[in-house]
Amino acid sequence: MIDENRRNTIKIFLGATAALGAGMLATPLVGSLVAERAGYIQPQRTGAIPIEVCKSPDNCPEEYAVPLEELKNGPVFKLLKVNTMAIPAVFGIVRATDGKEYPVAYVSICTHFGCPLNVSGGKYLTGFHCPCHGSSFIVCNNPDGCPDKKAAFLEMYVSSGPAVRSLRAVKVEVKNGKVYPLVAYV
């Protein structure tokens, strides 16, 4: 006993849901196509969104700055509050294989599912570990890059676990013995 009326009701319900879902997915997609006009934040090929923290170290608020002296004792966590956003950044110093020291900063959100990350390493920043699903990230500290890991210099690549993307970085600059964040890729 097949009732056409009932069949149609379900079809209308399902169709409405599908249309709503498709619309919800399509809205940002169409938006991204007309990004220039609509002012949408265009995602990069990497999925990262650039957020400008400071234009230059000269006019950067002091609360964003981390003194190098402090960084020499170990990585420092800083919650950067930019407009409505809160960006969890970990500042640190990476010791490259050639013996030089590089100030760096990364967004400490796991690229797998978004858990907060724990810093690994002592005085120098060597990597991150995710307590939720067990992903590990290690910094590529060879100035020529790490071709076996397909990672560029200072890239925080995935060494194990379910994450599929390298950690997102914060562009930094040093001035007067302080590290200033310029652009955060969240």
């Binding site: 090929r45 990497t46 999925g47 990262a48 190098l68 110093i93 490259a96 030089k100 020291e101 590089y102 100030p103 760096v104 690229t111 100035p143 397909k150 990672a151 560029a152 210099f153 200072l154 890239e155 925080m156 690549y157 993307r165 390298s166 950690l167 997102r168 970085a169 914060v170 562009k171 930094v172 600059e173 040093v174 310029l182 652009v183 890729y185």
Partner: peptide
């Protein structure tokens, strides 16, 4: 490879 996030800044050593 082109979807991995490279380190964004220009690496410059300190000291």
């Amino acid at each position: 490879p082109d979807s991995a996030v490279p380190y964004i800044g220009t690496p410059s050593p300190i000291g």
